[in-house]
Amino acid sequence: MGAKRKSFTPQYRRDAAHLVIDSGRTIAAVASEIGIGEQLLGRWVARERARMDEPPPAGDINERAELERLRAENAQLRMDREFLKKAAA
């Protein structure tokens, strides 16, 4: 019997692809760093770049803007909470 194939979540694939896209490092360097094959990571990067180039559906524009606003607000609230935790200690 052969070894069981690894299974990666869609979020892991997007994150791995963004390590290449956002950092400007080579696919080979990132692939060896995270322990996956170069060809596999190359396919993930190509898919993510194609997905990023697609225009968002018309109904999603407002939802995307609100999501960005909520993420920023969430980050601010986390920083405030951390500050208050330290101040209370």
Rank of each mutant, 00 (worst) to 15 (best):
R49H: 00
G42F: 01
E38V: 12
K85A: 15
L84T: 06
D80L: 14
G59C: 03
E73N: 07
R13P: 02
R71Y: 07
P10S: 00
Q11I: 05
R49V: 05
E54N: 10
I61R: 10
K4F: 03
D22W: 09
E73K: 05
D15C: 00
L41D: 03
H18E: 14
V45E: 04
E38Y: 12
K85R: 14
V45Y: 06
R49M: 08
A31N: 08
R5A: 08
A28M: 06
L41P: 04
R14T: 04
Q39P: 00
V20N: 03
M1E: 08
Q76N: 13
D60C: 10
I21V: 09
R13D: 02
E82A: 15
R71D: 06
R71L: 13
R14Y: 02
E33W: 07
R13T: 11
D15L: 07
K4Q: 05
S32D: 15
L84F: 13
K6D: 06
N74I: 07
N62E: 11
H18W: 12
I34P: 02
E68T: 13
M79H: 11
K6V: 09
A87Q: 09
I27Y: 01
E66R: 15
A50M: 06
L77H: 08
A46N: 09
L70F: 13
M1S: 11
A16E: 12
E63L: 06
G24D: 01
S32N: 15
E66N: 13
T26P: 05
D15I: 03
A58H: 06
L77W: 15
A65F: 03
L40K: 12
R25D: 06
I27N: 07
A29Q: 10
R64L: 11
A65G: 05
K85I: 11
R49K: 08
A46F: 05
Q76K: 08
I61E: 09
L41V: 07
I21S: 04
N74C: 04
A75V: 08
S32R: 15
D80K: 13
I21A: 07
R81M: 10
T26S: 14
H18G: 00
R47E: 09
P10K: 03
